[in-house]
Amino acid sequence: MRRETLFNTALCLGLVAFPLWAQATDQPFLITLATRAVILALAGVGLNIALGLGGLVSLGHAAFFGIGGYAMGILASHAQNYDPLIEWPLSIEGTTSMPVIWLIALAASALAALAIGALSLRTSGVYFIMITLAFGQMFYYFAISWPAYGGEDGLSIYVRNGFPGLNTLDPLTFYGLSLAMLALGLVVAWQLARSPFGLALNAARQSAMRARTVGLSPYGLRLTAFVISGTLTGLAGALFADLNRFVSPTMFSWQTSGEIVVFVILGGVARLFGPVAGAVLFVTLEHVLGGVSDYWHIYLGALLLGVVLFARGGLIGSICGPAVRHD
């Protein structure tokens, strides 16, 4: 078995075993921590489709993370206040059903990614980074100045949303749901990478001219990738909001975008499980180093520098060697 497959299998087993162990030893806090890692990993898996496969360095993925979060916050807050979302021309109620919230989060973030991508992808390189950053900040300031949904203070949701047949308040159940969504995201990312679309997108990343010369439009390929990427990150946002039962403009901030990029780089750009390894490492460091010092980001910064300077393939790259491509 290839070393990367072994690593990925071990990571998967760990993701299943760790919360069970935490449950057995009565440490629900650790389950919540693992849930956080899994949800952030999903956000990273989303970004990795744009960044790893498409070469699109987006510093605006917090926009989709936040849209997913606010989709949950807005729908659930209307439901808990018995206040319809809109009353005219027809009355639409809020909801506390996770599947409905997820679908709406997916649709909203897909639409936003389509609009942001359609404009941003007309630029490239550092301009693309800047324009995606600007879009993310636009959403951030909009959320701050939207008093109906908490403005700067954010929005608290008093109950966890429901999933038919499951007790979502049980940490292990909610973890299971989040892990299932991460698995779904990984399947999407894996399938995309091996599909004709993935081959074309990956070629366009290496040479846009090459793609054009065979009659493929790099713009169309990148826009599709950007929308799928943003949509997965939006789903992660909805889960993240449910985990915390709280949404705030911070979800939209450029720091959040930066953190999602960090998961991908830490774990390994363009590696299927890169964002998972990165997010797990990030949350572990946050927990361990956070206990040592309030200024734990200094250590994280040093680690990131080390990865960028000495281990370009990230955690997976340094453990498993360079990516092996199937014939």
């Binding site: 599909s195 004709p196 074309a200 070629a203 009659g215 493929l216």
Partner: peptide
């Protein structure tokens, strides 16, 4: 993979999001 890219372009259609390119 480079040759398949050409074959992909020759179909004149948008590349599919599913299936195995190779």
């Amino acid at each position: 993979q480079n040759a398949v890219l050409g074959a992909l372009g020759a179909t004149g259609r948008r590349p599919r999001l599913f299936g195995n390119a190779l």
